[in-house]
Nucleic acid binder design. Structure first.
Length: 418
RNA sequence: GUGGGUAUAGCGUAGUUGGUUAUCGCGCCAGAUUGUGAUUCUGGAUAUCCUGAGUUCGAACCUCAGUACUCACCCCA
């Protein structure tokens, strides 16, 4: 038997309603804020990710699914959602349209990592991006949308962490401070940190190695070293989050694993134990559009992971309502009525009722069992009597309540009682 | 990339001083005097016991190798 590739998951019919429900809630909330969907290729030129995600990041260095196609082009399966959207934004001239452009996409993401709880080689996210506004209101709205989505799903087991990592200017100065602080300590730190000090000093704060923990406490904090504009922006963000009644914690240690972020960064993290960690992470990336060849247009975005959200909801027994079940099952007692059943099913479907009937020659009794098994809401029995009287006893399978309904009224009766 | 754990039917599992028709539950199929399901009862199908090699008269069980899955680190959704 051929099995699925390592680190991938199948979604089976009995589970798919969860995905559909989450997508529906996300789309509805996004619509309220004026976001429209985009769809872009699942693979891009490798160069895109080198330039956007950054060539010092783990994602680019060791986790990308990169391959040569038959024309010798180097292509890469998307490791994250933002880069492809920004590329498409520029390529389709959206930077010449009236701003802001608010958009989202549902996309699989691919990273070659060792799978574990909440971490797959293919995972899915809703990637949300807002271009053209520098205002902290936009950042606050993005965070607020995610919170609204979680509220509507009745998912509450998370905390919101925010931070600001400043702009190019304040980060340059801050990096110098950090380097100065770590200069005499680096010999005692882990190998990763030794190379981080030169390449990407911000990530020193992200190190989980035990050796390095002690030095973090007294390290200069980026939020205390922001330039005036960035500090103001961060204050604005806090103000609008407060107005939105959103509770958050400032976590000076989050710096995010992608190089394109500046100013606002944030994470929705679970308060569960275990490694599920971040459900949702994002931030501002004001320089990325320009880096990729577009105009100097600011942007802010977020990625919201499906698999982690679903497994956390399951873990916390947050129920998602399954509304994918059948409205009506038509059982047959009279073999001569099979064609009538077929025709009635077509007729009712045409009127918007989801209908099924026997397709494999079950006995009457097992038809009943089957209708129960698939959680059909109503059942009718179609026999000679019904054929003559054009009237059916409609039985509610959950309550066992029965009601006589004329054939012409069937569809409206069932739809009305949904 | 580093370290731990596990591998028995569709799913979840029992099964050691190595000898069984390999256990049980769920699910699946059928039936309980023939037009009403979920409970109950009865019967049935389904297992290369992860793969390969070895030890042994005899291996699901012991040894070695491989593979897969899983958890944690790293990183991230």
């Amino acid at each position: 038997m051929v099995t699925r590739p390592k680190g991938t998951k199948d979604v089976v019919p009995a589970e798919s309603y969860k995905w559909q429900k989450i997508e529906e809630v996300e789309k509805n909330v996004l619509r309220l804020y004026g976001f429209k969907e985009m769809r872009t290729p699942i693979f891009e030129h490798t160069e895109l990710f080198l330039r956007s995600v950054g060539d010092t990041t783990d994602i680019v260095n060791k986790e990308m699914y990169t391959f040569l196609d038959k024309g010798e082009r180097s292509l890469t399966l998307k490791p994250e959602g933002t880069s492809g959207i920004v590329r498409a934004f520029i390529e389709n001239g959206l930077d010449n349209e009236p701003q802001p452009i608010k958009t989202f996409t549902f996309t699989p993401c691919f990273r070659y990592e060792r799978p574990q709880a909440g971490r797959l080689r293919e995972h899915h996210q809703c990637s949300i991006e807002a271009f053209g506004s520098e205002s902290a209101k936009m950042d606050a709205e993005i965070i607020g949308m995610v919170k609204t989505i979680f509220d509507k799903l009745k998912f509450i087991n998370y905390k919101i962490n925010i931070n600001s990592i400043g702009c190019k200017e304040c980060r340059k100065k801050y990096n110098e401070k950090l380097k100065a602080y770590y200069a005499d300590k680096i010999d005692f730190m882990c190998d990763d940190c030794k190379s981080r000090l030169e390449k990407n000093p911000l990530r020193l704060l992200d190190c989980k190695d035990e050796k390095c923990q002690g030095f973090k406490k007294d390290a200069p904090k980026i939020i205390n070293n922001l330039c005036d504009d960035c500090a103001e922006h961060f204050n604005e963000l806090k103000k609008y989050l407060a107005i939105s009644d959103i509770h958050f914690e400032i976590n000076p240690l989050i710096v995010r694993g992608l190089d394109y972020y500046n100013r606002t960064v944030f994470e929705f993290i679970t308060n569960e134990d275990g490694a599920l960690g971040t459900i949702c992470g994002g931030g501002r990336y004001d320089g990325l559009v320009e880096t990729l060849g577009g105009k100097n247009i600011p942007a802010v975005g977020v990625g919201l992971g499906f698999e982690r959200l679903i497994s956390l909801m399951e873990k916390n027994e947050v129920k998602i309502k399954d509304s994918s079940n059948l409205d009506l099952y038509i059982a047959t007692v009279d073999e001569n009525m099979r064609d009538e059943v077929f025709a009635l099913a077509l007729n009712l479907r045409d009127k918007g009722v989801s209908v099924d009937y026997d397709l494999i020659g079950r006995s009457f009794k097992s038809e009943m069992k089957y209708a129960n098994k698939i959680s059909a809401r109503y059942i009718i029995v179609f026999g000679e009597t019904e054929y003559k009287t054009k009237t059916f006893k409609v039985k509610n399978m959950a309550t066992s309540f029965e009601k006589e309904v004329a054939q012409d009224e069937l569809a409206s009766f069932i739809l009305k009682n949904k």
